[in-house]
Design a protein around this nucleic acid. Sequence first.
DNA 1: GTTCTAGAAC
DNA 2: GTTCTAGAAC
Length: 762
Amino acid sequence: MDHDAGGSTAVPPQPPSTTGAAVKEEESGGKQVVVVLVGPPGSGKSTFAEAVLGGSAAGRPWARVCQDTIGNGKAGTKIQCLKAAADALKQGKSVLIDRCNLEREQRADFAKLGNTVHVDVHAVVFDLPAKVCVSRSVNRKDHDGNLQGGMAAMVVNRMLKKKETPLLTEGFSRIVFCKDDNDIKKAVDMYNALGPSDGLASGVFGQNSKGPVQVGIMKFLKKTDNSKEKSSGPKLTPSESIPQMQNHFPKKENLEAGGSSICPVETEKELNNRKTNDDKSIESVPSDISSRTLAFPSISTADFQFDLERASSIIVDAVADILQKYDNIRLVLVDLSQKSRILSLVKDKAAKKNINSSRFFTFVGDITQLHSKGGLRCNVIANAANWRLKPGGGGVNAAIYNAAGEDLQRATKECADTLRPGSSVTVPLPSTSPLHQREGVTHIIHVLGPNMNPMRPDCLNNDYTNGSKILHEAYTSLFENFVSIVQSCMGKNTERALEKPMTGVISPNDSKTKRERTHDSERTKKHKLVQPIMTSNQAREGDSKKSTVANTKTWGSWAQALYELAMHPENYKNSDSVLEISDDFIVLNDLYPKARKHVLVVSRMDGLDSLADVNKEHLSLLRRMHSAGVKWAQKFLEEDPSLVFRLGYHSVPSMRQLHLHIISQDFNSTRLKNKKHWNSFTTAFFLDSVDVIEEIDQRGSAAIRSDEKVLAMELRCHRCRSAHPNIPKLKAHIANCKSSFPTHLLQKGRLLLSSTMHTDCT
DNA sequence: GTTCTAGAAC
DNA sequence: GTTCTAGAAC
C-alpha cells in the first residue's frame, strides 16, 4: 500500500467557509483543537481523555479517537484514527488522539493536521516515571487494548526506549508536559475550561531539565539497562510561552570595546560581509543572524578548574558537530579577558578544523553587555550556572543574574530547581528584564559542566575520562537547546522561513525511503531555516558530480549506536562484542550477524558517517581498517578453513559512523531474514574494500553507484546467480550451492579464503 | 490453511 | 537497524 497516498487522503480538506462551524470560528477567532496525547500505557492518557470528554463544562464539543477501540471496540489502525479525527473535525468537534504517539513518525500525521485544516494541534506529554506506568499497566484489569499483566511491563519499557520528545517543529503549537497526576489534573482543568472560541497560548510548558540523551550502544551490544530512561531530540524549555525572536537595532556604541589581537571584534556588518572564499564550507550567513546567535562562556574552565587544553578540544568538537547538523545558526565563545587562553586555544583549533569563522568565532567582552558595549547582537546567551540554579558565586553566573535582575530568578524557578552536570535548561527571559530590554536577550540557557575543583560540589578528582564526557554532554545539551529555541521561533515564522533560499538543500536522491522523503520535504518547507546540511566534502562531491548518491542523511536514534561506540569505546571495552580497540578503529561482532562470521571494523573518526564523507585524507585510515579486517578474517580462517570472507562497505549504510563489514559468504544465519538483508551483501550495494581504496586513491572519492533501489531487486544466489522466489527458498539453495564464485569476486583479493580451500572454492 | 512479505510500531 | 502482524501470495 502506498502509505503516503493513504495518509494524505485521510487528512480532511479544509471545511468550506460557508459551513456554520467555520464561519462561527472565524468570527469568534476561536479554533478547534487537536490534542495529541503522548505517553506509554499506564501513563494516564485514557483517564485524561475521559475526564476532558466528561467534564467539558465550557461548552466545547470533544471527540476521543482511541486506537485501542476504534475497530468496532477492538484495536484499529492509524488510518482509521486519522479518518475518525477528520470526521470529528468536520462536525466542528475538537479531538483527543488517544494512542501512544511516542515516536515522531507515529504521530507525524496527527501533528500535521494543523497544516491542512484550520485547527491548532497540541501535544500533551504524559511524562510520568516509567515505574509508575509499568505498575499501573501491570495491575489494571480492563484495558481497552488488552495490555495488562506481565506483558505490560515489557511493552512499556520497550516503548519508553523509543520515546522521542515532541518538538514544536513537528507541527504542534503547544506542548504540555505532565510529570505527575497533579499536572494531569491541571491539564484536564485547562481543557475543560476551554470554551468553543477560546484558544491556549503557544509554547512549551512544564518540561523539566533532564540532561542530554545518549543513544545507548548497550542496545547494540546486546546489554540492556532499563534504569537509564532514554529519549531523543533537543530539549525544549519549560516556559509560559516562547516569545517570537526579535531583532534589536539600537545605536551602535563603543564598537571596538573589548577588541584584541587574539580575538578581534567584528561588527555585524563586517561579519556578514565577510567573504567565505577561504572557507571550505559552503554555508552562508544571512543578515538577520542575530536572532540565531548563541553567545556562551567557556564552561567549567574557570571556577571548576577544568583543563583548558582538553576543554578547548571539546568545545571545538561540539561546535563542529552542531554546525554540521544545522545551518544558519551562529555560535560565539565569549570571555572577558583579552589574554584569555581558552579563547586562543579554541580559535586555533577551530581554524585547524576549518570551521567557518563567520559561523563560529571567539569574542572578548562582557557576556551581559554584548550588544551595548560590544556591538554584537545575540538573542540567546548561555550561563555557566551552579547546580542550584541560584545567583551568586562569581564570574559569569553572578554577572548574568545581576544584569538580568529578579526576572531571571523567577523565570528560572518556573523551569527547573536544579541542574545536573552535563545538562542545560532554557529559560525564556521576561521582556521586563533589563538584559532583555538593553541587550535584546530573549533566552538564557543555564549549563552545568563537570567540576575539577575540590572546593566545589561533585568534584571529579581529575577523572578526565568522565569529565570530558560530561563537558561534551554539557555543550551538546546547550547547543541542542539553542537549536530548539531557534526552531520554535522559526516554526512561528513560517512565511519568513519560506522566503529564505538555503544552500544546504536536501537532495531528491536521498537515501531514504519514499515515505521518509515525503515527510522530510514537508518538514523542509515549513522549517527551512534550520535543517541538516551537507558536509563540505559532500558538497564538493555533489558539485563535481562524482557521486550519484544523496549526501544529506538524517540518522534515527537507533542508527547512532556505532557512533556512540566509536566516540566512547572505553565504556564498552568489557563487552563481549568488542574484539579490538585501537586509536583509529574498533572491531566488534555484529549484533545481528548475517552469516556464521560477521564482524565490523568501525572508524573512530568523528564526522566520518559513511563512505560519502570519505576523501583522500582518509586513505590511510581505510587501509588500516582493511588490514584489521584481513587480520580478523585470517584468524577466523585458521579456526575454520571452510569459510570464505568478503570485506566491504554498504553504499548507503543504515548505521551512522563509517564501518567495514567482514562477512563470511555462507550467509548461514537466522538473522538474515529479508530481501534487503540479502541484497545489501550480494549486489552492487556492497562495495568491496579493495575497490573503495583504489577509487579513493585514484579519484578522491568513492563512486557510490547504487542506491537503495537495488535492495528491492530479485533474489539471486551469490555464487551461481540463479533466481529464487523468496528468502526461505534462497536460503535452502545457498546451503547447498557448490558453484564457484563469479569471476570478478575472485580477482583483486575481493574474497579471502584459506589457502587449503582455495581450489574447492574456485 | 499456511507461508511470506512489507509496512507499522498497544 | 528489529519486531510484529495484516494481508498478499501461494
